[in-house]
Design a protein around this nucleic acid. Structure first.
Lengths: 169, 169
DNA sequence: CCTAACGTTAAAGATAGCTTCAAGGTCAAG
DNA sequence: CTTGACCTTGAAGCTATCTTTAACGTTAGG
């Protein structure tokens, strides 16, 4: 089949298929005398496999190294290893997302927890200070820096669980 | 303070700070007679805020529209709305990651569930067919999701896996 | 006075994964 | 014979977020 038909069958665009060939993800295919690419039926499955792997989080580079020249002969060990590591990657991402989410929830709570006797500006400062104190390491901000920030306006900075031990630096 | 000191205090590079100014994320700062930028101490907090928001999954564009000219005067309603929507984004992504993970786990199981009387080639075909027959849209991850992933992932990844010779010939 | 470290700018490069464009060649139908 | 749909190529563009480079000015210290 020609590239247009393969595109229709696989749901990809012709340009994408040519792109995959260019980067070595698909092996070069046969050409007709006029230069047109000619694909075997199996190509549809290969493309489906590629998009499925992409959706699972594999990069094209990873897919290229995993894809065997022959769909029936996989490097079993390498494949299982890649799958296992990808699951671990996903779990790491999940952990970070969970943290991000909790961080945002805590931020919302903190903003709404404005004491009655505090005006918005002071509350803004309180929330900001709390938030930036939450991740000192990631921001490369030391405890000295925090104190420096506080010095700007040292009125009140009340929050539960303010600093956690400022690990290392 | 000059840009180098701000960079040290904030953990960002000078080029990144200049970049933020160029795209309008930071307002233009005062200059000394020699042309050097001069920052107020508050700038450290603004940069910390920006990187924190980035880690939470906000794009620089989003941050720019949310950041008030004055750190003490936020658009409370818009901010809360943005935070809430970002949490929803995260949760949607979490759901998709969970599905991706389950998909991979099922794939591993399926590969290992090769009947005794089936050779590897036939098993490969069986697994492939099962996989491609699975809910193809279930794991779809949009470019927006990728961005959110990047926000939590990129700056922490050790090496940005480089591609060899990006498609040219 | 010299040098190293810092500051400035505009422009280009890097990353992933494509799409789009320009400039053609091929082919089937009418 | 013309039209329009298809095919070809290489090169450039797109997105977001920076970094790097080049070429140059400034400043602090010895």
């Amino acid at each position: 089949m020609k590239i247009g038909e393969l595109a229709r069958l696989s749901g990809l665009t012709p340009s994408r298929i040519r792109f995959y060939e260019r980067i070595g993800l698909l092996k070069t295919v046969d050409r007709r005398p006029n230069g047109y690419r000619t694909y075997p039926r199996q190509a549809v499955m290969i493309l489906g496999l590629i998009t499925t792997a992409q959706r699972a989080g594999f990069t094209l580079d990873e897919i290229r190294t995993l894809l065997p020249p022959d769909l029936e002969h996989w490097d079993h060990a390498t494949l299982m290893d890649a799958l296992t590591r990808k699951i671990a990657d996903i779990e790491a991402l999940q952990a970070r997302l969970a943290q991000s989410r909790m961080h945002l929830l805590r931020l919302i709570e903190d903003i709404q927890a404005r004491p009655d006797d505090m005006d918005c500006a002071a509350n803004a400062h309180r929330v900001l200070t709390n938030m930036l104190a939450d991740h000192p390491k990631a921001l490369d901000v030391t405890s000295d820096d925090i104190r420096l920030l506080d010095a700007t306006d040292r009125r009140q900075s009340v929050s539960p669980g303010r600093r956690k031990k400022t690990a290392s630096r």
